[in-house]
C-alpha cells in the first residue's frame, strides 16, 4: 500500500497531491496490465473505475452498424481514462481497447465515491483534476468537430 502511494505520486494526474490523500487513494488503487487489443471496458458495462495510464495507449472506440469501427480518441502515458463512475447510471459510453501493452493504476470507482463523500477535501482535489481532464477532452472534441482538415471545394 505504501509502495503504491509512492508510485501514484509520480503519475501526472496526481502530481502535487497531498501525501494523506495519496495514501487514501492507494487504498482504492490496484495495478493493472492489459495486452494489446485487450479491452479495458466496453460500452454499456458498469463503470467502476478510472485508469491512470502509466505506459501504453488506449483507444476509445464505437462500432457503428454499416460504417464499421470509429476510433474517437486515444489516451496514453500520463493521462487518465474514465470518470463515468462519478455519475449515475455509472455506465461506460464507449469501448476502451489497448492499442499496445498497457500498464495502469486502476482506481476503484465505488471506493473513490465513498471516500470523496466522507472527505470533501480529497473530493474537491480529485474532482478539480477530473474537471481539468474533462476540459482538455472537451477542447479536443470541439476541434475534432470542426474537422479542420476537411477538403472544401
Amino acid at each position: 500500500m505504501e509502495n503504491l502511494a509512492r508510485l501514484l505520486k509520480d503519475h501526472p494526474f496526481l502530481a502535487g497531491m497531498e501525501q494523506v490523500h495519496l495514501e487514501f487513494l492507494a487504498g482504492c488503487a490496484a495495478n493493472a496490465r492489459y495486452a494489446a487489443d485487450e479491452f479495458l471496458f466496453k460500452e454499456g458495462q458498469e463503470s467502476d473505475a478510472s485508469y491512470l495510464i502509466r505506459t501504453g495507449r488506449v483507444a476509445l472506440e464505437v462500432s457503428i452498424p454499416g460504417r464499421g469501427l470509429a476510433q474517437l480518441q486515444t489516451v496514453e502515458t500520463g493521462e487518465v481514462l474514465g470518470w463515468s463512475w462519478l455519475y449515475p447510471p455509472y455506465r461506460w459510453q464507449f469501448d476502451a481497447r489497448a492499442l499496445e501493452p498497457v500498464r495502469a493504476f486502476r482506481l476503484d470507482g465505488n471506493c473513490l465515491r465513498a471516500k470523496c463523500e466522507t472527505d470533501h477535501d480529497l473530493g474537491y482535489e480529485l474532482v478539480k483534476r477530473f474537471l481539468y481532464q474533462v476540459h482538455v477532452r472537451l477542447e479536443r472534441t470541439r476541434i475534432q468537430l470542426l474537422d479542420v482538415y476537411r477538403a472544401d471545394t
Binding site: 476510433q71 474517437l72 486515444t74 496514453e76 479536443r140 476541434i143 475534432q144
Partner: peptide, 21 residues
C-alpha cells in the same frame, strides 16, 4: 489524426494534444 477506423495504433486527437506530449 482526428479519427481512425481500426488499423491505426497511433494517436487520435488534435495537434494541441501532441504539444502536451
Amino acid at each position: 489524426v482526428d479519427r481512425a477506423a481500426g488499423v491505426w495504433s497511433g494517436r487520435i486527437g488534435v495537434i494541441t494534444d501532441l504539444l502536451r506530449t
